[in-house]
């Protein structure tokens, strides 16, 4: 299990990464939409997003729509690769054929 990326190897962060990884490359998701798809509290989601951002897996873009601030989240290239590597490592561990 030592090969498993510790940044992703936590249920909450794996679900965040999987959700953002389901978006086509070049798309980003608002914080509330991500929260809705994950059914997590805003505080919990923020905490995990910060860890993913610190690892440069998630890119946070802050913008405005009128006067309302909007936060967009997307996987970075590194993050997407890390997610793919992580699931591949799991599959190898489980002895699944690719």
């Amino acid at each position: 299990m030592s090969d498993l990326d510790p940044v992703i190897h936590a249920a909450a962060r794996l679900r965040i990464t999987a959700t953002l990884g389901a978006l086509p490359v070049g798309d980003r998701m608002t914080f509330p939409r991500l929260q809705e798809l994950l059914d997590m509290t805003a505080g919990n989601l923020s905490t995990h997003l910060r860890k993913l951002e610190d690892a440069h897996y998630v890119e946070v873009t802050k913008t405005h729509q009128g006067r309302t601030p909007i936060t967009y989240l997307a996987l970075t290239k590194t993050g997407r690769r890390a997610f793919e590597d992580y699931t591949e490592t799991l599959r190898n561990l489980l002895g699944e054929q690719k």
Binding site: A11, L14, A18, G21, M40, N44, L90, L93, L94
Partner: peptide, 24 residues
């Protein structure tokens, strides 16, 4: 006891797949 804890590999893989299916 939150969702920060890792599960075993099979459960983690199922979790990732379930989440991506939910998005789909």
């Amino acid at each position: 006891p939150d969702d920060d804890a890792p599960l075993d590999p099979a459960e983690m893989l199922a979790l990732a797949e379930r989440q991506q299916r939910a998005v789909g």
